[in-house]
Amino acid sequence: MEEKPQGCARVTGAVLGSPPSEDTPQTPPEVARKEERMSARVGQKAPDFNAPAYYRGSFKNVQLSDYLGKWILLCFYPGDFTFV
């Protein structure tokens, strides 16, 4: 939530928690990665993340787990300046 100085680096959202594990010889890497990708399911914990955000005139950092105790509506959309 803190306001950070804005550099020119290409900052992006990141998923928190266990970092992507190195592929072990036993597990086919394709399968391992696919499971990691599709971890959002109803009845399961929402993947935690940290992301830069624009909020009422300033730039903030949002971490989902900071909002435990509140209901969250998280809406993804294809892109800014699209029509729908």
Partner: peptide, 13 residues
């Protein structure tokens, strides 16, 4: 808050 996920990491999760 309007979040930025330029690398698609959150979207993938």
């Amino acid at each position: 808050h309007m979040l930025s996920d330029q690398a698609g990491n959150i979207g993938r999760a």
